[in-house]
Amino acid sequence: MSAVTVFGICAATMVGLGLYGLITNPQPLRKIIAFNLMGSGVFLLFGIIGRRGAAAGMGNDPVPQALVITGVVVAFSATALAIALLLRLSQTTGSTTLKTGVQPSAASDPPGG
């Protein structure tokens, strides 16, 4: 078994795990973590493709590597935005539920804020 096989199966499982967590975990923060888990699996799959494309004295194709580096940074900024939204939601409504029709608790925030 080569590194490609071992880590390839690992990465595919991580995508599946992340998807499961994203659907079944009710807390938004857990959904964000699960989504990151899924993203990390996708990045790893990309790394596997790059590893298979090892050539010209390089152990890993540099083009997928560069794209993954860009992807990691974008994933981080999306996570930061999601968490800022979540913190604002909990600040405004006093809870982090994603269910519709939940009344916000008494004005914890000035109107229009």
């Binding site: 390839g8 990465a11 595919a12 998807l19 298979r52 010209a56 194709d61 540099p62």
Partner: peptide, 28 residues
């Protein structure tokens, strides 16, 4: 759904074509 997705991806990784396409020589 998660198991199917994972299995499909794992299958895709195991069945990738040989030799793999690469841009490494172009970069060098």
């Amino acid at each position: 759904l998660a198991a199917l997705t994972g299995a499909a991806l794992a299958g895709a990784v195991l069945l990738l074509p040989d030799p793999a396409p690469t841009l490494a020589p172009t970069v060098v």
